[in-house]
Simulated assay, not measured.
Amino acid sequence: MRAVVAFIAGALGLVLAGEGVAATQPNNMLSTYDARYEVRRGGSDYGEAMRRLEQTAEGSYQLANETEISFLFLSDVRRYESTFDFTAEQVEPLNFSFKRSGTGRNKGIRVRFDADAQQVVDVEAEAPLPVTWHADLMDEASLLEQLRYDLAHSDETEFSYQIIDDKGANDQQRFRRMASETLKLPYGEVEAVKVERVRESKKRETIYWFAPELNYVLVKMQQRKEGDEVATLLLEQLN
C-alpha cells in the first residue's frame, strides 16, 4: 500500500509551466506547481509525497507539503504549510504550521512571523517564542523554495540559511552545490545538479538533485544514516 510521504517535509521543489519545458520566471516571482513523488527504501515502495505551491490573488505564496510513510505496522503522517511573500529575491515568511500523526506521539506547531516586532509568535499561546530574529529568517517548509531559486539565479556553490524548524527553534542549514548527473526516474530521464546538506556530523547524509531543465524542480532526494539508506524520494509527476 502506498502512502503520502516525507522525511522530506521541507524539501521538495518547484515546477514548470508545461511538462518537459523549463519556464522562465521574472526575478520577483516563483513558479507555482503540484509535484508528486514516490519514496523507496531498499528498492521497495515506502510511501508517497506531495508538495504544492500556489499564489494568492494578493500575490503571496501558499505552500503545502503532505507526507506519509507506511512500513509494516508503523506509520508516519506529516503536513507542513507555509504562507510567505517573495520580495527582492527573498522568501519572507508570514505563517508556518506543522502537524505530525501516526505511530507514537502526535505533535505540531503553528507560528506567525511578525517582521515589524521581529518576533516569531506561537499562534495557540499568542506569545513570542524564545528565538533569535534574523533579517532573512525563514521557516523549514519554505527553505527549499529559496534554495531552488538561488541555485537557478547564481553561480554560488555554498548556501546558508537561518530558519525556524518544526520544533519552533532556531537552526542554520547549509548546502553545497556539486556536479551534474543523469538520473533515470519514474518521471523520466533528466539532468540534475547534485546538492549536499552540509552537516557537522557525518552520521547523517542528505543529498538533493535539482533539474535545471525543469526550472530546478527537486527530482530526487536521498537520506542515509551511518551509511544505510533511510529513504529515497523520486519525482513521479508534475502538474
Rank of each mutant, 00 (worst) to 15 (best):
residue 196 E to S: 01
residue 32 T to M: 06
residue 2 R to H: 09
residue 12 L to R: 03
residue 62 Q to I: 15
residue 110 R to W: 14
residue 140 E to T: 02
residue 166 D to I: 03
residue 171 D to H: 03
residue 6 A to G: 07
residue 133 W to V: 08
residue 150 D to S: 05
residue 46 Y to T: 02
residue 91 V to L: 01
residue 191 E to D: 13
residue 45 D to K: 06
residue 60 S to I: 05
residue 114 D to Q: 12
residue 181 E to A: 15
residue 23 A to N: 10
residue 149 Y to F: 11
residue 96 F to R: 00
residue 66 E to T: 13
residue 104 G to Q: 10
residue 161 Y to E: 00
residue 160 S to D: 09
residue 74 L to S: 11
residue 88 A to N: 15
residue 216 Y to S: 04
residue 234 L to Y: 05
residue 101 S to I: 09
residue 132 T to Y: 09
residue 182 T to M: 14
residue 72 L to V: 08
residue 116 D to L: 14
residue 223 Q to E: 05
residue 171 D to G: 00
residue 49 A to V: 05
residue 199 R to P: 00
residue 54 E to Y: 13
residue 202 K to P: 02
residue 149 Y to K: 02
residue 131 V to S: 02
residue 104 G to W: 13
residue 112 R to C: 07
residue 189 E to T: 15
residue 131 V to W: 04
residue 72 L to W: 10
residue 172 Q to D: 12
residue 45 D to Y: 10
residue 207 I to T: 08
residue 110 R to V: 11
residue 234 L to H: 13
residue 238 L to F: 10
residue 224 R to H: 04
residue 130 P to M: 13
residue 128 P to E: 04
residue 92 E to C: 07
residue 153 H to R: 13
residue 50 M to F: 15
residue 162 Q to V: 04
residue 133 W to F: 08
residue 161 Y to S: 01
residue 79 R to P: 09
residue 116 D to Y: 14
residue 47 G to N: 06
residue 20 G to N: 05
residue 107 K to A: 13
residue 183 L to H: 12
residue 25 Q to N: 11
residue 68 E to K: 12
residue 18 G to T: 15
residue 222 Q to A: 11
residue 13 G to K: 01
residue 63 L to M: 12
residue 164 I to R: 01
residue 72 L to K: 08
residue 30 L to Y: 08
residue 82 S to G: 09
residue 213 E to H: 09
residue 201 S to R: 10
residue 193 V to Q: 12
residue 129 L to W: 10
residue 193 V to T: 06
residue 8 I to V: 08
residue 186 P to N: 13
residue 129 L to A: 10
residue 35 A to F: 03
residue 133 W to N: 07
residue 14 L to H: 10
residue 120 V to P: 00
residue 161 Y to N: 00
residue 150 D to G: 06
residue 202 K to C: 02
residue 195 V to W: 00
residue 206 T to I: 05
residue 207 I to W: 03
residue 100 R to N: 06
residue 91 V to Q: 03
residue 148 R to P: 00
residue 160 S to R: 09
residue 25 Q to H: 11
residue 172 Q to R: 06
residue 147 L to M: 01
residue 212 P to L: 14
residue 67 T to C: 10
residue 174 R to Q: 03
residue 187 Y to Q: 07
residue 115 A to N: 13
residue 47 G to C: 02
